Simulated assay, not measured.
Amino acid sequence: MRKPRHLSPEERDLWDSVAGRMKPLDPKRPKTPEPVAPPKKAALRERDIIQDFMVGAQADPKRPNDVLKPVGARLKSAPVNMDAKNYGRMTKGKLKPEGRLDLHGMTLAEAHPELVAFILGAQAVGKRLVLVITGKGKERDEGYAIPVRNGILRHQVPQWLALPPMAQAILQVTPAHLKHGGHGAYYVYLRRSR
């Protein structure tokens, strides 16, 4: 840090002449501020002492660290866009899927084009209900600070189905009944092709 520079006698005279012509903003205010007493140090209480902190030290490993509800719960709470009678029959497993796509063992890069081709192809030939099997996913924990969800495809497929070009072909997406795969599969009810 630099030391302050001292003014020369000429600079000091110039400064005094400028400062002498100035008027205070508040004439009632004293020219020199009153000294402020330093704050008193309070005794530290036990709760004020910061303890050593480790990320995730108090996390409950049994409780998922998700902000969102599980995919199945979100899909079940979505509004019904199709005939209520057929929706009830579909969720009870009484409607038979007309087509089936199994994405087991595929990566995200392999599964997405397969899903797009399957959904648009099924709608083009007039199918109404198809089954997309994603699998439930493997239980795994690599020990990272951010937990990894089980079943990457199981979480990604409903998001893909809600985006173009498939969104305009789909009327309803729900988790499949147990006899068609349960939480590892989705019923996709398609719109009629025009």
Score class of each variant (00 low, 15 high):
Ala185His: 00
Arg100Gln: 13
Pro97Leu: 09
Met22Gln: 11
Gly135Met: 12
Pro79Val: 04
Gln156Tyr: 13
His180Pro: 09
Leu131Asn: 14
Leu44Asn: 12
Leu129Ala: 09
Leu103Asp: 04
Arg149Pro: 00
Pro164Val: 11
Glu139Cys: 03
Arg128Pro: 01
Gly105Met: 02
Asn150Glu: 12
Val71Ile: 14
Ala176Ser: 06
Pro165Phe: 09
Lys28Phe: 06
Tyr87Arg: 04
Ala185Asp: 01
Ala117Met: 07
Trp160Ile: 09
Ala73Arg: 14
Gln168Pro: 09
Arg192Gln: 14
Asn81Asp: 04
Gly56Gln: 00
Leu101Glu: 02
Gly99Tyr: 02
Ile170Trp: 10
Ile49Gln: 15
Ala124Thr: 08
Gly181Gln: 03
Leu75Asn: 02
Arg63Cys: 11
Phe53Asp: 04
Pro113Leu: 07
Gly105Cys: 02
Asp66Phe: 12
Glu34Ala: 15
Ala84Asp: 03
Arg191Gly: 03
Leu103Phe: 07
Leu101Met: 03
Val132Leu: 07
Asn65Arg: 10
Gly105Leu: 05
Ala57Asn: 00
Lys94Leu: 12
Leu44Cys: 09
His155Tyr: 05
Val80Lys: 07
Lys31Arg: 13
Glu114Lys: 12
Leu7Ala: 13
Met82Tyr: 02
Arg47Asp: 05
Gln172Arg: 08
Lys69Pro: 02
Arg5Tyr: 01
Gly20Lys: 06
Gly181Val: 02
Gly93Val: 10
Pro39Trp: 07
Pro30Cys: 05
